[in-house]
Amino acid sequence: MTTPMDLLIVTLETASDRPVERGDLSLALAGAELVDLLGAGAVTLHGDRIVPGTQRGMDDRLLDEAESSLDRVAPYESVEDWLWRRGRGLSEAYRATLDAEGDDTRQRRGWLRRRSDRQTPVDSPARRHAAERWRSGEPVLSGLAAVVGVHDEPVGDFEGFDADALVTVLAAVEDAVTELAGVRQQRQIEEAAFDNIWRAP
């Protein structure tokens, strides 16, 4: 049971006014991976730099990949750079893992899957774990969910020795998602302007 998988399940199950953008989710999942690496002592943060510890293995394939991909050369990688690099295509990787482990199905009509069919995790230990963590209002999961738009209630304070590191990670995820939203908006403006040129008499 990992924070990224819990986040994915929550985004699939929680009603929202808008669908979660894949890019936003990928950035949040990369942040969730970093949270778990911090919790396992696999990394520490010095300012905004990710300092790897001794490689130990995370008992999870995707987290093992994350740990293996850490920049182990000083001055090390910033949290922001990690999110953009590690986050590329990460939502698809986690959805494929959820499906392969039998924890994901589609509510669909007939025999064929449609792209519009809503994905819903089946009842499983992973789903129950995510649901319990979500109901408890655990600050990290709530904070990540808020960033991708499926949670708008106040997030509780982080506690423990790594509270400052968690705040740094969540802030970086929020900044990256905001930046990505700006890129999408600019692209839409440019596409609309291009369409208007061709439609002009």
Rank of each mutant, 00 (worst) to 15 (best):
residue 66 A to Y: 03
residue 164 D to K: 11
residue 159 E to F: 06
residue 46 H to A: 15
residue 61 R to Q: 12
residue 40 A to N: 12
residue 22 R to S: 15
residue 139 P to Y: 05
residue 112 L to C: 05
residue 64 D to L: 06
residue 131 A to I: 04
residue 162 D to H: 05
residue 26 S to H: 07
residue 192 A to S: 14
residue 129 H to Y: 13
residue 157 D to P: 00
residue 173 V to D: 01
residue 49 R to Y: 00
residue 17 D to K: 10
residue 177 V to H: 02
residue 89 G to M: 13
residue 158 F to S: 01
residue 144 L to D: 03
residue 195 D to W: 10
residue 145 A to D: 08
residue 44 T to H: 10
residue 178 T to L: 12
residue 37 L to F: 06
residue 105 T to A: 15
residue 172 A to Q: 10
residue 192 A to N: 11
residue 61 R to V: 13
residue 124 S to V: 06
residue 96 A to K: 13
residue 95 R to V: 13
residue 117 D to Q: 06
residue 146 A to F: 01
residue 69 S to V: 02
residue 83 L to H: 02
residue 110 G to R: 12
residue 193 A to P: 00
residue 44 T to K: 12
residue 46 H to N: 15
residue 30 A to W: 05
residue 113 R to F: 10
residue 33 E to D: 15
residue 122 V to A: 11
residue 177 V to S: 03
residue 73 V to W: 04
residue 49 R to H: 12
residue 11 T to Y: 01
residue 147 V to S: 01
residue 138 E to K: 02
residue 74 A to E: 14
residue 115 R to A: 12
residue 171 A to S: 14
residue 183 V to W: 07
residue 99 D to P: 00
residue 124 S to H: 13
residue 118 R to H: 11
residue 188 Q to Y: 06
residue 12 L to K: 04
residue 63 L to K: 04
residue 155 V to T: 06
residue 53 G to W: 04
residue 77 E to T: 09
residue 45 L to F: 09
residue 175 D to Q: 12
residue 13 E to R: 14
residue 3 T to P: 00
residue 70 L to N: 02
residue 51 V to W: 03
residue 29 L to N: 03
residue 113 R to C: 05
residue 60 D to F: 00
residue 161 F to P: 03
residue 163 A to W: 08
residue 20 V to K: 01
residue 10 V to G: 01
residue 124 S to G: 08
residue 201 P to Y: 07
residue 156 G to C: 07
residue 140 V to R: 02
residue 34 L to A: 03
residue 147 V to L: 01
residue 78 S to N: 03
residue 68 S to F: 09
residue 8 L to E: 05
residue 78 S to F: 02
residue 51 V to A: 07
residue 153 E to K: 13
residue 10 V to H: 00
residue 47 G to H: 09
residue 153 E to Y: 03
residue 127 R to Y: 00
residue 93 A to Y: 01
residue 69 S to M: 12
residue 85 R to E: 04
residue 98 L to C: 11
residue 156 G to R: 13
residue 160 G to F: 07
residue 98 L to P: 05
residue 63 L to T: 06
residue 181 A to P: 00
residue 104 D to T: 06
residue 130 A to F: 03
residue 122 V to T: 15
residue 191 E to A: 15
residue 188 Q to M: 04
residue 168 T to P: 04
residue 55 Q to G: 11
residue 37 L to N: 06
residue 48 D to P: 01
residue 38 L to R: 06
residue 192 A to I: 08
residue 44 T to F: 00
residue 192 A to R: 13
residue 173 V to Y: 04
residue 109 R to T: 14
residue 126 A to L: 15
residue 138 E to H: 10
residue 175 D to R: 14
residue 41 G to P: 03
residue 183 V to F: 13
residue 82 W to P: 00
